[in-house]
Design a protein around this nucleic acid. Sequence first.
DNA 1: GCCGTTTTCGGCCCGACTGTTTTCAGTCG
Length: 592
Amino acid sequence: MKNREIAELLYETADIMEFQQIEWKPRAYRRAAQNIENLGEDIEKVYERKEKKGLTEIPGIGEAIADHIAEYLETGKVKKFEDLKGKAPSGTTELMEIRGLGAKKTKRLADELKIKTVSDLKAAVNAHRIRRLEGFGERSEENIARALRNYEKSHSRMALGKALPLAEEIIFVLKTSLKTSLKTELGSKTPKIDLSKLIYTGSLRRLKETIGDIDILAEAEGEQVGKVMDAFVSLPAVGQVVSKGNTRSSVILKEGPEVDLRVVPPESYGAALQYFTGSKEHNIELRNIAQREGYKLSEYGLYEKASGKHVAGKSEEEVYRKLGLEYIVPELRENRGEIKAAIKKTLPKLIDAGDLRGDFHLHTDYSEGRASLETMVKKAETIGYEYIAVTDHSRSQRIAHGMEIDTLKAQWDEIEKLSKRFRMKILRGSEVEILKDGSLDYPDEVLKKLDIVVGAVHSGFSSTEREMTGRIVTALENRHLDILAHPSGKLLGKREAYAADFGTVFETAAANGKVMEINSQPSRLDLNDELILRAKEYGLKFCISTDSHSVSDLASMRYGLGQARRGWLEKEDVVNTYPYSRLKEVFKKLRD
DNA sequence: GCCGTTTTCGGCCCGACTGTTTTCAGTCG
């Protein structure tokens, strides 16, 4: 799959063009790159099937870019891009990633100070050569120095599972601080701040698998604004204040990530929430619609273009309705067809947290889990689940204390005993290793006694695409396998997905009635939204599982649920929303 | 370079903050 590769190439080319002060083209290139990332289909396959014509059918790709992509797929490079790159200094695109440095400044640094790489920049900062440049000055130099330190510390994205609790914590502390300061001015006549309106927005609200920075929105007016901003920049977690204004302030936390706070008045709250939730691509599309309909849309509201009259903005729902659209939930706002669906009123009714009735992937201290079987069962029952599957590792997973057959049977005995004491159905499961040759890690007579077999790959990540695809396909053709766990094998920020032809994997899975897991572990989120969208095309069913290794992990469900919603899944697509009585339709070996 | 209920040319989202600039350009989201 070369989608990401090609998108990266287009983004890089856009940066270089911008550096060379070429107008408009960078925008076209970025838009094309974005659409390739969101394609949900292998671009190579598109090209094989329909050649260049297929490429130009992708939005944002016309004749010229289609030719470049074709050239890349045929030869592995694009002559025009190579030439372009040859004319720009080698470190250009990297320098432009540093906060505060865009195309113009990078160009001036290169032209006037011969700064071409990050280390050139560092040297220039240390020698105070930047402040002598016309239009730069001492402050600019200090800011570049700080941005440089930040860039080196972390220019990677944070996992959703880390960012979300962090944002919740910040909001909680900010609310507490504001409550206290509001109380101390008892008797003041200024309107109170509605603290329920203090929420996180941005990619976090869209539950994207990784987060660049944390965006927070608050509602306040008049002198209250200053109070919110003051409370925000003086939070204990703040390491550095980047900017502070009347509508926006920006800080960098000691922990690393940047947090932006925007404050808007009540009549604009909905428009601002919509705007800051993004995505950027979704918003641009929305503004285009607004323009066509004779409106102007900004974070302050929807305005009639002719009269300048404010016609919507109090709530998000109002903004969408006024534009003739069904309300679109944050998880769908990626410009992946949701706007067209909202116009036609054919948006999916997404799966909700309340729909989930069980969990098909969890570990106990029989293998690498940290809690006992009984503790896990007890906690799952408190959540209100109707069933769970206990899926400890199979025998060849030595590192994870994989279970020999005798131990597995002992676990079945304990499950039997516990079943008498708990209302919830406890299923005999196993996370069975898919071995190098695609066979499963227990003999058939053991597998057939399991209620649920969750197959997983944990080794041989550097296999070729052919080997890995063959291995998984063989496993999917095994009648004992029910669920394919963490199908892509990626670890966020640590390990790429293994090379496998997911088209073939999904096709085989669909033909054999297998279920695809959406693994909710914060470090995995696998399948992610893009692969879910692809898998759904093949008519596959999914399950959202936590892969819990401790009691607290059971709460990770919300991250997997987020990916499912981003992947347009409805209740019916996800088998752990089915009542137990219906599960037999999916898992044939299930006992009554 | 792309696109079209403004349709084959002429647009291309919009507003806030910073710094050094005395009226605005650059950058960001």
